[in-house]
Amino acid sequence: MAPLLEVRDLRVTFASEGGDVHAVGGVSFSIEEGEMLAVVGESGSGKTASAMTIVGLTRARSARIEGSVRFRELELVDAAESVFRRIRGAEVAVVFQDPLSALNPVQRIGNQIVEQIRAHERISRAEAQKRAVELLARVGIPEPRRRARSFPHELSGGMRQRAMIAMALSCSPRLLIADEPTTGLDVTVQMQILEEIDELRRELGLAVLLVTHDLGVVGEVADRVAVMYGGEIVETGDVSEIFENPMHPYTWGLLGSIPKVDRPRTRRLPAIPGQSQSVEPSREGCVFARRCPHRFERCDQAPPSRLVQRSAGHFESCWLTLAEKRSRRLVNGEFGLVSGPESAGRDVG
């Protein structure tokens, strides 16, 4: 059976005054029914652009989209706006980053949910209102009847994101795209929100595409992880494989920069040197070569084969041999790119 969502060689290019900007440079992944895939990467890695393209919400009018996005066998690249309108909200729902700006500031929470329900179903306003209150209760909002009459600015950050999730779930979608759903929330609330999403996924058999820059939060909830860098997926595999047996130097760097409670506080948090880059079309070597401390001649000359299988369901793109990877990926006994104190990282805490 075909997966719920299948993305093949997706490319997103924005035309700008200084030439084309390649936000996504050929990305492929798929999501099964009820599965949670986490797409992890720094800002500018093309993760949000990939996710937004799926529902046809790429911001710039100048975006050029190539490749294939199949949702339930329906091709969405170059699909008509009417096709998207039917799917959005009803089959694929989105939870955005920063709910304060993503919710309409002058519309009551309940009415925002009612509006979505009534866009897809022929039911009365009163019935939709009743369902909105039930949804708010379901995502753990106390006094849902009263909260339905609140405006977004009257709720706390976590509450707003819960309301956003309630709205996303209002038409029982098959796929939920969560774009950095916990960014900007308190750390304690972040985990609650992710657990809420995970719980709903299990209850409703919902597939989730979680877009995040925080590999640390992914381990608890996702089934599979795709690590993006420079508009490409550099490594993908089951969450346990990625955490226990990471193959790509960029993934090592991401794992090494997750703060840990059992690490001495005096040490600096290791960081990946350099800045993230967008895809350069003229580039000849590996996307990560410029920032990779393990780079050798080959890395600058030609890109490594795209997503080579290293073990069951575990793929990556890198020129290092398995033996080299095994000997290099540990820094001070932990995954990392470079050892902590020397790197220009920021202090913990």
Partner: peptide, 27 residues
């Protein structure tokens, strides 16, 4: 038009005219 909540309105599957009148024009 470029506000986040307008993108949300589109993500909800509302028609173009409803997004324009109820969300963009209203504010």
């Amino acid at each position: 038009v470029n506000e986040d909540f307008v993108r949300t309105a589109r993500a909800k599957g509302l028609s173009r005219s409803r997004v324009l009148v109820r969300h963009v024009l209203r504010t």
